[in-house]
């Protein structure tokens, strides 16, 4: 069965950064409309089945209401709890089900949660978050079409995807975590509302993607020493408000801050670097783990992450291969 997996994070694009930046609200309604366009695009491209990861807002289910695609829609058996782990659990099920491509709506944090469940997922991420370094801003019909073409074997995943880097982190308590864009050490003692708001709290940025044209903490690295998706490198920047050098970086939408820079270091893939406490570690923009005085985390960047489908490139490849041309019966 040629299957596209579909998942959306209902909470993406709704956190406190709306109070302190120009971040927009991504409403359920707009997410439902994006999902609907994805489904229609994928079916049109030949996907035989859309596997819906239900979420606690029923976004995916509401998106297919009234589409008369009953035979082609299936829900995974899964009880969402309204927490981050929902995305991770759904990703595991997608993997078990052998889904050919996954469309995932959210920001960087959502994609990370997904990859925690299926590390090398064939992924077409669509941005509905606050910071969107990783996902694409793309018309969902096009995205759905690209995912559908892969699911239906009109395109091969190898042909149109690039494998992403992953920042693997060993935490002081022995557990493991990962990030797709950045791991940032901030001078905070609590995870609190999770978002990193204060630019002068940033102590160290380790970025696998440091694109100067992106929004978020990785822009500190991106505007200091760019490292792109395909570069076999990462970059580590040590920050301090009292430093003599600084960089202007948009750590939130519309919110450009001056960040003092002490040191910039390129990091090779496979090379381990340390992030030393005290402080909170933010993974892809969200504070998630607090380290004490003498604790430290070890981070290693490897290219073993999701196979990211570039929808524009996929569509262009399909068109070059004449995939869209069909013979008419009469």
């Amino acid at each position: 069965m040629t299957t596209v997996g579909l998942i959306a994070n209902p909470l993406a694009g709704k956190d406190v950064r709306r109070f302190v930046s120009a971040a927009s609200l991504n409403s359920d309604r707009s997410k439902i409309e994006i999902l609907k366009r994805c489904v229609l695009g994928a079916i049109d491209a030949g996907a035989e089945k859309i596997l819906l990861a239900n979420d606690f807002r029923n976004l995916t289910i509401r998106a297919v209401e009234g589409l008369n695609l009953d035979g082609k829609i299936e829900e995974i058996l899964f009880h969402p709890e309204g927490r981050r782990t929902d995305t991770t659990e759904a990703a595991k099920i997608f993997k078990e089900e052998g889904v050919k491509s996954v469309i995932s709506l959210g920001g960087d944090g959502t994609q990370r949660d997904l990859v925690l469940g299926w590390r090398d997922v064939p992924l077409l991420p669509i941005s509905t978050g606050t910071n969107n370094v990783f996902p694409f801003m793309v018309d969902p019909t096009v995205a759905g079409t690209a995912a559908g073409l892969i699911a239906s074997n009109h395109l091969s995943i190898e042909e149109v995807s690039h494998q992403a880097k992953v920042i693997h982190v060993e935490l002081p308590n022995g557990s493991k975590d990962l990030a797709l864009v950045d791991v940032v050490l901030v001078d905070e003692r609590l995870t609190g509302s999770r978002a990193v708001i204060k630019s002068d709290s940033v102590k160290q940025v380790l970025a696998a993607i440091a694109n100067p044209a992106c929004i978020g903490l990785a822009s500190i690295a991106g505007r200091s020493n760019p490292v792109y998706f395909d570069d076999e490198l990462a970059v580590s920047v040590i920050c301090d408000p009292s430093a003599t050098e600084s960089v202007y970086a948009p750590i939130m939408p519309g919110s450009v801050s001056e960040v003092g820079i002490v040191d910039i270091k390129e990091v090779q893939l496979g090379e381990s670097i340390e992030l030393n406490g005290p402080g909170a570690l933010a993974f892809d923009g969200e504070r998630d783990f607090v380290m004490g005085e003498n604790e430290s985390a070890k981070a290693t960047v490897l290219r073993n992450g999701p196979k990211v489908i570039n929808p524009i490139f996929a569509i262009q490849t399909a068109a070059a291969n004449k995939v869209f041309l069909r013979k008419r019966n009469s």
């Binding site: 709704k14 956190d15 950064r17 609200l25 609590l190 609190g192 509302s193 999770r194």
Partner: peptide, 17 residues
């Protein structure tokens, strides 16, 4: 006007937001 969601079971998250 702006609105944001926070975990209402966590007093620190609420306080911060």
């Amino acid at each position: 006007f702006p609105g944001a969601i926070v975990d209402g079971m966590d007093c620190v998250a609420v306080f911060e937001a």
